[in-house]
């Protein structure tokens, strides 16, 4: 089963490459206080709130940041088992 965490990492990898896993897991542990595999839809809003400025620091492309955040927001709307 594909976890939400894996989907977030896959979406992030388009922008951060191999660092995506480390970046996303640190954000989840730091801001949500839970292990990455336990990420749920309802956590995404808080995660997105903090991921946006963090990833904005690491890339020069504001359009890419907005596109990335949109892709994360669409993950939060996806129904899961």
């Amino acid at each position: 089963m594909d976890s939400l965490y894996k989907e977030v990492v896959d979406a992030t990898a388009d922008y951060l490459g191999p660092s995506a896993d480390r970046f996303v897991s640190r954000q989840i542990v730091g801001h949500l206080g839970k292990s990455p595999e336990k990420l749920k839809n309802r956590d995404l809003n808080i995660l997105i709130k903090w991921i946006k400025p963090a990833i904005a620091l690491l890339t020069d492309d504001t359009e890419a940041v907005d596109n990335y955040i949109s892709s994360l927001k669409s993950l939060s709307k996806k129904k899961r088992k």
């Binding site: 660092s19 480390r22 970046f23 640190r26 954000q27 730091g30 801001h31 903090w50 400025p53 963090a54 620091l57 690491l58």
Partner: peptide, 14 residues
Amino acid sequence: PEIDRPITKAFLKG
């Protein structure tokens, strides 16, 4: 590295 800079850590820590 940018990912190890204090400003990045500040956003991680909140």
